[in-house]
Design a protein around this nucleic acid. Structure first.
Length: 281
DNA sequence: AATATGTACAACCGCTTCCGT
DNA sequence: GACGGAAGCGGTTGTACATAT
């Protein structure tokens, strides 16, 4: 059996050691899983050396943590998880492992990939930088409220609590960059409803956002500019925030895109009270 | 049907941090 | 406190698959 030792970055026995890279095979997965089930996963280099796998300790760890571990949750990310990711990312930025701590079963790698593909895609479509204040503002004032609406729309009383708990999780108290205004919780669904009041003057014209299609498709979108908390229909077919991405939307979904786009580019502005009443045109 | 393009995700790489000596 | 090995983290890449043309 070929063995090697040394740090996780390189095999210690020199270049002649054949280190396997690339996708793991089922046999490798089985070997790693069996070895860890017997010996535990305390020392990854030891695992790499002793299991017979021609992998680095680092590669073994990554495969176990991100894929093989029974703690890893498979399947689509739920609305609540999406909301948590959005919220924590707005608080902490790219602190993936830290964000993952609040999403049991989800790995930092998964969250990172998720943000990269979904969020950055939206930023790209909106033609603004994902780290820009404009984009973050759009996330807070358009995307997250809509997500919250959908969460609450599909929640039974028994499932409402996790949504509330997300609002008061420990992360909220350590936001140093974007401290929450006293007495105002931007993630509280009630405040969401209050903050996102449509400005009647901005009712869409027939040339941009026909009102009849907005209510049909978005349900909670009113007059193309806000959300009516009393109307909770139309999201049944939407399972994730891809539904607000331009390229995955139906024709009528363009309306929410119009909303995001307008907000992101300053045609709708958020005043400092957390309410959207003002606009620039 | 063939090709181009986009998307999602697993895995790698380099750097930083942690921890034992 | 300094050093070195191990683990962890975040950025990036590679590739399979899906969708559009």
């Amino acid at each position: 059996m070929e063995e090697y030792e040394g740090n996780s970055n390189s095999p210690a026995h020199g270049e002649d050691f054949d280190v396997r890279k690339g996708p793991w095979t089922e046999d490798e997965d089985a070997i790693l899983s069996n070895f860890i089930s017997i010996h535990g996963n305390a020392r990854w280099n030891h695992i790499a050396c002793s299991s017979g796998l021609k992998r680095t300790g680092k590669s073994c760890r990554l495969r176990w943590v991100n894929y093989l571990s029974p703690d890893v949750k498979r399947g689509n990310i739920t609305l609540e998880e999406q909301f948590t990711i959005l919220k924590l990312h707005s608080l902490w930025g790219n602190r993936w492992s830290k964000i993952a701590q609040y999403l049991p079963g989800r790995t930092d790698n998964e969250i990172k990939n998720y943000c990269r593909t979904r969020v950055q895609k939206q930023a790209k479509h909106l033609r603004c930088d994902v780290n820009s204040d404009r984009f973050k503002e759009t996330m807070r004032n358009v995307w997250m409220p809509r997500l919250m609406e959908r969460i609450n729309a599909q929640s039974t009383p028994a499932t409402c609590e996790p949504v509330d708990s997300m609002i008061t999780d420990p992360g909220q108290s350590i936001d140093t960059k974007n401290p929450v205004k006293p007495g105002y919780d931007q993630f509280n669904p009630i405040h969401y409803h209050k903050q996102f009041v449509p400005a009647p003057e901005l009712a869409p014209t027939s040339s941009n956002t026909p009102a009849e299609t907005l209510s049909d498709v978005q349900g909670t979108v009113v007059n193309g500019l806000g959300y009516d908390p009393e109307v909770q229909t139309g999201f049944g077919e939407c399972n994730d925030w891809d539904s607000v991405g331009r390229d995955t939307m139906s024709t009528d979904d363009e309306n929410i895109w119009f909303l995001l786009d307008q907000f992101c580019h300053g045609t709708i502005s958020n005043n400092n009270q957390g309410n959207i009443y003002d606009y620039d045109r």
